[in-house]
Design a binder for these strands. Sequence first.
DNA 1: TATTAAACGAGACGGTACGTCGGGTCTTCGG
DNA 2: CCGAAGACCCGACGTACCGTCTCGTTTAATA
Lengths: 194, 194, 194, 194
Amino acid sequence: MPGPPNAVRRSERARSAILTATTELIHELPYAKLSIEAIAARAGVGKQTIYRWWPSKGAVVFDAMLEQDSGPDGPGLPDTGDIRADLRLLLRGSIAALTEPGVEGFLRAMYVEIQQDSDLGELYRERLLRPQRTAITRRLEAGIQAGQLRPDLDLELTLDLLVGPIQYRWSLGVGGLDDAYADALLEAVMATAM
Amino acid sequence: MPGPPNAVRRSERARSAILTATTELIHELPYAKLSIEAIAARAGVGKQTIYRWWPSKGAVVFDAMLEQDSGPDGPGLPDTGDIRADLRLLLRGSIAALTEPGVEGFLRAMYVEIQQDSDLGELYRERLLRPQRTAITRRLEAGIQAGQLRPDLDLELTLDLLVGPIQYRWSLGVGGLDDAYADALLEAVMATAM
Amino acid sequence: MPGPPNAVRRSERARSAILTATTELIHELPYAKLSIEAIAARAGVGKQTIYRWWPSKGAVVFDAMLEQDSGPDGPGLPDTGDIRADLRLLLRGSIAALTEPGVEGFLRAMYVEIQQDSDLGELYRERLLRPQRTAITRRLEAGIQAGQLRPDLDLELTLDLLVGPIQYRWSLGVGGLDDAYADALLEAVMATAM
Amino acid sequence: MPGPPNAVRRSERARSAILTATTELIHELPYAKLSIEAIAARAGVGKQTIYRWWPSKGAVVFDAMLEQDSGPDGPGLPDTGDIRADLRLLLRGSIAALTEPGVEGFLRAMYVEIQQDSDLGELYRERLLRPQRTAITRRLEAGIQAGQLRPDLDLELTLDLLVGPIQYRWSLGVGGLDDAYADALLEAVMATAM
DNA sequence: TATTAAACGAGACGGTACGTCGGGTCTTCGG
DNA sequence: CCGAAGACCCGACGTACCGTCTCGTTTAATA
């Protein structure tokens, strides 16, 4: 019986070669053409070495994405004291990230996998979505402290109002995602939040 | 060179058997396990008959979904004269549809395909998304006429504020999608729209 | 129930187009690539028109071959009065025919089909092989009459000795089939036959 | 690019299962119905495992035939000192082999493939035909040494005279292949050879 | 000459098998 | 024991043809 692999003996060389190969292939191929076999070949690694450490292709892609950065916006969010300016940066930055080729491929891939693999969905929420949401929530709370937002503001809902429309347009390919959209969205949400 | 098939001679029996089989299998299997081969076998049809009329599995699934109904909310939207009540129905109904087993499988499948197939994405937008958005826009315009909404309202943005957060939560599995969420979302948007 | 087709109403145009197309394709393609579909397309004919009049691809090919000539040597055989000269012509002519591109493709095809389809084998024997053998037998009998061959000669066996080695070498690709071989073979057989 | 497979790591279990399955199916089915798919299924093997090691169905069948025995007559030939007796055994044995169900299916299949695949034809000649012909030639040479045959005998031609008529009758289904035919043939050839 | 039943061209259909790709497992060898 | 290599069993892909079955449309015998 194999039992779990011994993480101590894990080859760092293999691990990073796999993630690098995955990143390259995500940028070169449509996601449907990305195969474990291709990753292994590109990384100069046996397939078993991938299967030993990751449960699915989506998990490899997820790790490769994490290796690149810590998500579409990064976990941090500036606090200049001006809530409107900071959120503008957030929304414009989100749109820019979703459009950037280095990121879009990864995110589309994650969208695909999340619809089909609830374990991976949970992982995505814990490792990427929750930190991002927490960071924004923190900034909104600071805005309340600073008297720039209503004290009784529903933070979760405000967050959804800021992020949801952008994700919705992006994921369905609706288009019209530019700075002007970000600004208009921000003004609409600020109108309810002050 | 084969050229395009002659649609006049198409077998209605085969067409509807294929869509019915697809619908059944979408409900029985995880989408990743749905194969053209399985659809053909269940429908009692040769694979070629599927490939003759649809360019991809996603296109078959899309047609099967259309055959079931005309989308998550249907193209129509009530107009009782009370914009708040009508939109409440819309949002609650959207959430209910996204959760209903008969619909969720189809929509997850479409989300998967849209990320990977831009032709299918365009089809989805034209045949499902645009009608839905047009219907809501019409209702908002009527609300403006009735003096229940601000005349200078940005309709597209308002639409995104209503629909985006729900789609966003659903597609990423964030949870918390219930009538209370729908109502809170509606109140927030109405606050900006009146 | 369809019943047998009415041969009177048969389209001569279709019949000859099919046989011509078959002959062309036999010359252009390896036999394994020759399909009924290709024949029908080349002939500008519906597949059903082929299936209506021939039971199998082999039968079409057989008819196409008959249409070209009446076999590798033709049913006739000269009788100059000199049995050795006449048989030399026969053997040299057989080898020439088996090597001629216009004939070889057909004969290889028939060899293939005869191994697998006993009905077609019977047809081949009756329509091609038997006449050929009868013609040679007649000539041998004339040779006996003329006192050039032993009166107690086993005609069937002599025939096999003349024809068998050539067919054997040709069908197995042994090579060495030329006029010199024909002549040597003839001398050997004549030695037993006089 | 895959490159050639590594023969060292080849599974003997799979190899012999494939050849056994092929032998069984050759005996059960007409050759036209024998598919790679059926062989793989019967052998409990993936199709790729067949395609990895053999270039064509004919090549598999050929190897399966070799696995059974070393050809229609076997490479050896007795030398009792009596050339006539030994050749009688050869011819009668050839006819028996060609008629034996366990062999006939294989040989018909090889005849079919050889007409269409020159690589396989070459293989057949090298591995089966040449050894058989060499063995007979050796025996004839011994007969010359023993003074039972003419010293100036054309060995290749004599060989063709012995074997050709039988192969010819068999391959075209002429019939009449029995011990009497073998004996008559032998006497005719011996008449030229002594 | 008009009628009419068939053969015809076209090609969609339910199937079988093709040869290929990739998934996930297993085995062998080297470090 | 991990890792590389890659063979293995398997399921599915998308394609080619099979032989059957409609469809209109000629077309030729007969009424």
